[in-house]
Each structure stands twice: as C-alpha cells, then as structure tokens.
Amino acid sequence: MEGLSYIAGARLPCLIVNVMRGGPGLGNIAPSQSDYFQACKGGGHGDFHSIVLAPWNVQEMYDLPALGFELADRYRCPVILLADAVLGSMLEPALVANEIPAIRRTPKPWSASGRQGRANKNVVHSLFLDAEELAAHNAILQSAYRDMRREVRFEARLLDDAEFAFVAFGISARLAWSATLQLRSEGHRVGLFRPITLYPFPEIALSELSQRISGMVVAELNSGQMLQDVKLATNRSCRVEFCGRMGGVLPPPEELASAMRRLIAERPLTDNAHAATCT
C-alpha cells in the first residue's frame, strides 16, 4: 500500500491485478470482494485514487487489462483490475482477436530513463516538503480525478422497464444476473446494474436509476462495501437493501432472488444493512 501511494504521488502509470480472496489476514483462498474499500478508497496514505476496473467474465479478464494500461497512461495513475478467486480460476469461452493489436506506446517525456540527449534531467518523486508545493501537487491529482469521471463504465441489463434492480459487480453480478432471469420468469420486473468502473463510480447513472425504480438489492461478497457508494449515489430516493456473504462463501442465486422477492413484497430486511447474510 505504501508503494501504491508512492506510485500515485509520483504520477506513475501502472496496472495492478488483485484477485480477491477471503480475509482479513491470511484468511483463505476462496472468492471474496472484500478489498473494495482498499482499492476504491485509496488504500495507502494521502489523498489519492486509483482507477478500479471490475471484470465479470473471462472475456473482460482478457479485455480490461488493455483498457487498464491505456487509462493508466492517459491519467498517469495506478489502475487496479479487481477480480476474485472465481474469475481468477474459471474456464469459459472468450473471443480473442486473431491479431493482437500492436502495443500503443504513449510518449513519456517525464520518465527517468536516462537523459541521453535531453537538456534537463527528469526526477520521479513524491516528496514535497513545502506545504504549499504539496497542496499544488494535490490539486493536480484532484483535477486528474475530476477528468477521470468521463471514463465511467457500467452495464445496464433489463433496466428499461424495471421496477427493481440488483446492483452488483464482478462475480456477484453473475449471481445477480441468474437471480434476475429467475425473477423475470416469475413475472417480476427486475434488472441488473453492473458498475464496470468501481472508481470512478457510476453515481450519476445510479442516481437517475434510483429515481425511477422502487428499490435495489446490492449484492457483494463482503459486509457491504460498495453498498456505501450506492447509498451515497441514490441518496434515499429508493429503498436499498443488502445481500452479502463473507469468508469466501458463494451464495446460490436463489438467495439473492429471495432477498429481492422480500423487497418486492415490501417486507424490509433488517434495517441494519450491514447484516452480512440474507438467508
């Protein structure tokens, strides 16, 4: 985390792949999404962010790294590919281009790679002892974070006529999608909202969605981390319930479906949205 903070401070582009396992501590090697806070809220010291990409299938595990490198170069920041132990070990078909596109090398006139013919030296550092100087550097970082908002990516499935929605990323979105199809077959107007960029978070789209539906179930493999961002984005304009499992336990899609049925029947879950289970 100290390294990540240095990378952000020195404005270095890089791609980090975190295949999340159960924690804290040594935890286990079962699938988890409990590093959402760590990835999306900085993780190291200092006011910084990384762009966080959340694949949900093998295709995106293949496609998103290329985007990750591109974004890292564009904004000179760390990009984190946040996967989990299911995505990290699953087999499924994916389309691979016959010809891998040539690597696009972004010029890096700032890099400390040896001066050669350059008149001035380049220094890569994150040390600004003078408070005003550091504040100016912080302002540069913050303006990059504002610019990043144009990179928001999400997928909306069956949301046009929806009354209720699952909000989920990564492997939880796969479970939520199965639950969505089951609920549709029962006649419920349910859809799925899947953030692909967890930072920047698709808060505007989610806010708009919250104003035209009745409720959402946020499904995560943690105690309710993205849930906080969903609540901030929706700002009480619809009901938000949570369905999650910790410790590497994968809930069956039926567990998510029944959480949604309860919401639809307007029988609130416990008010404590951090309750970890919804069985």
Partner: peptide, 22 residues
Amino acid sequence: VAICPVGCAVFAYEYFECDSIE
C-alpha cells in the same frame, strides 16, 4: 538513473545531473 533513498540523502536527486527516482 540514480535511485535515491529515504534518509538524510533523500534529496540526493537535487545534487546530481542525472535522471533520478526517489
């Protein structure tokens, strides 16, 4: 490319004319 430390020499990159990384 000089690789500078954390310690009293943390500003070594200000004293050498070469590219440097802290």
